[in-house]
Computed example of a mutant assay.
Amino acid sequence: MSEASLASDLQSLEMMATGFAKRFGDADVAAVSQRVQHGDLSDVMRVYAREMQQPIRSALFGDLVEAMLIQVQKVKVDVGQTMAALDKLLKANELNFLLLSTVPATLTIYTAAKWLSTRLSWWISGGSREMAASMQVIVRDIDRLLNAGAGAAEAAAGNAPAGARDGRLSAVAQGRLVCLTHYLRHHALQLPNPASAGTLRTAGGWSPIPPRTRAVFLQDIRDLEDVGLGVAQKQRVIDRMFRTFRFL
C-alpha cells in the first residue's frame, strides 16, 4: 500500500466519522477529526452501542449498518498503518539484513579456504604444523620416560635383577614406550620421503628435512622399541633424533 492510498483511506474514515457524528447532535467536526486521526472512534461507538440494543430494527431502519461500515474502514486503515510501519522498519534495517545474509556465505568461504589451505599444505610439505607439534610432544614424553627409567635403574643397581643392572626398562615402562612410539609411528607415516632434501611446515615456519625423512624416522622408532637396547642407548637415539630432525 502506498502512502497516498493510506492517506486517502484515512481521509475517507474522517469524512465518514464526522458526517456520522454530525447527525447525532452538535458535534465539533474538528475535534471528531482529530480523535479519528489518533484512532479514537468514541463518537461512532456511542451510537453503535445504542443501536445494538435493537440490532434487527437498527439494521433495517437505523444506523447500525453505517456504524459497522465505519468500523470496517477503521480496520482497513489500522492494517494499512501497521504495514506501513513494518515497511519503514524493514527499510531502516535493510543494511543489517544484508549483513546477516552474508554471514553464511562468509563462513562457507572461510571453511573452504581453510580446507584448501590444509590440503595444499599437505601436498607441498607432506605434513602439517599440528602434526609436527604432536610429534614434538610425543618425543619429549619418550625422553622423560627414558630419564625416569635410567634413574630407577641406577637406584636399584645394587640388588636389582640382571635386567635392571644392565640399564633396561621395566616391563611397565617398556609397555608405555611402545604406546608412545605407536602414536609417533602414526605421524611418521605421513612424513615426506623424497630422495632429496626438502622442507616441512612447522609452527615456527619451514624446517629443513634430510632425504628419506620417513624411512630414517621409522628406523629410529624401531631402535626405541628394541627391547635389546638399554636405557642409555635409547637416550642416545633420542639425542640423534633431535640432531637429525630439525622440526623436533
Rank of each mutant, 00 (worst) to 15 (best):
G198I: 06
A112W: 05
L100P: 00
A152G: 11
R144D: 03
R168W: 04
N147I: 05
S121D: 09
G149L: 03
L89E: 05
L146T: 02
A173F: 08
T108H: 03
T108E: 00
G175S: 15
L145R: 01
G149E: 02
Y183V: 00
V172F: 13
I124P: 01
M83V: 05
K114F: 04
A156I: 02
A173Q: 15
K76P: 01
R144P: 00
H187S: 09
G151L: 11
A173P: 07
Q73E: 13
G126S: 10
I142L: 05
S117F: 06
T202W: 06
L95W: 00
R129W: 03
A171E: 15
A188Q: 04
I209T: 12
L120Y: 10
G158P: 02
V75S: 10
G204F: 08
L90T: 00
A153T: 11
G127Y: 04
A152P: 09
E94Q: 11
G198P: 10
R129I: 06
L191M: 15
N159T: 14
L99T: 00
I142T: 03
L180K: 08
L191S: 09
L146P: 07
G151A: 14
M83W: 01
G163M: 10
N159P: 01
S196F: 15
L177Y: 04
A152M: 14
K91N: 05
Q174C: 10
L86H: 02
A173H: 08
T118G: 07
G175Q: 15
A113D: 02
L180P: 03
A203L: 15
R185V: 01
N93T: 03
G198D: 06
A188W: 02
A153H: 09
A155Y: 13
S121Q: 13
